[in-house]
């Protein structure tokens, strides 16, 4: 599926990376724990409730490009600037972590583990 499919399924807004909507994605990983994200061997879509500069730094280090923030959390200007440097896509879902993950599962996104 593409990022566009994710955005449509979640009725989400795109905070950054509008031009990358046709990027193909397959796997997702959900966590608020950045140390956990730093153990991933792969580069899935990250679903998280942690919305601060460290989220973006962690993605930079772990080479993750797509983040879905849950519960209507909005990235700050600082976060967007940093994410822009790394060509990332930032999506804001209005739903809870649980519902967001459920909808992505329904869409056919696969778990890493």
């Amino acid at each position: 599926m593409t990022i566009q499919d994710i955005v449509a399924k979640l009725g989400a807004t795109v905070a950054l990376g509008e031009e990358r909507m046709d990027m193909e994605v397959e796997h997702a990983f959900a966590s608020d724990l950045m140390s956990d994200v730093l153990t991933l061997k792969d580069t899935p879509v990250l679903v998280t409730g942690l919305c601060n500069v460290q989220t973006i730094r962690t993605c930079d280090m772990a080479s993750l490009e797509v983040v879905v923030f849950v519960r209507n959390k909005r990235p700050t200007e600082d976060m967007i600037e940093l994410a822009e440097d790394n060509d990332m896509v930032l999506i804001c879902s209005q739903y809870s972590m649980f519902k967001t993950c459920g909808l992505l599962w329904e869409l056919g996104m696969k778990p890493l583990y």
Partner: peptide, 16 residues
């Protein structure tokens, strides 16, 4: 912990 750290995984992950 608010920054997403503090689970005691840092040093083990460095080792790995």
């Amino acid at each position: 912990r608010d920054m997403g750290f503090g689970a005691g995984m840092g040093l083990p992950n460095m080792q790995k």
